[in-house]
């Protein structure tokens, strides 16, 4: 089956992001296709490489990046939600005159159309959040 995953909550604050990761990983291991993972609302905070969790805790951001590298997983951060919350890649830094970037490897910033396209192209849209 082909899935698009939507993550609506921030890392560490809310288990939604852990559940989304574990679901995505399990689906891939079972041979399903993940068309895209789309990060929205505070979910965009899953994509900052500047997080430094305690060493005895899971590294949520790094975990996504590694899964992306392993499975060529498309991790998309909503641009409007990212701009509000300060998630920045090279393109956004240049467009909005920011002095730094913080996007993690494997993530890209794009529009809400990517979510809608995912819903159209996939058999299931699975949403993680409250």
């Amino acid at each position: 089956m082909k899935f698009t995953i939507q993550v609506n909550e921030g890392p560490y604050q809310h288990q939604a992001t852990d559940s989304a990761y574990l679901f995505t990983k399990a689906a891939l291991e079972k041979g399903h296709e993940i068309f895209r993972v789309f990060f929205y609302h505070d979910g965009v905070n899953n994509g900052t490489r500047l997080t430094t969790p305690p060493q005895d805790d899971r590294n949520i951001v790094k975990r996504w990046s590694e899964l992306s590298a392993e499975h060529d997983l498309d991790l998309v951060i909503c641009v409007a939600a990212a701009q509000r919350r300060g998630i920045v890649d090279d393109g956004e830094a240049e467009r909005n005159g920011k002095d730094a970037t913080n996007i993690a490897p494997g993530f890209r910033i794009s529009g809400l159309g990517q979510l809608v396209e995912g819903a159209i192209q996939s058999d299931r849209l699975v949403v993680f959040g409250d």
Binding site: Y40, H41, A80, A81, G111, L112, G113, V116, I120
Partner: peptide, 19 residues
Amino acid sequence: TIYAWESLEVVLIGAAFEQ
């Protein structure tokens, strides 16, 4: 919370996809 406003943004963008 911001859910209502960001939901409306999805609806407006999604309209272009003619579903």
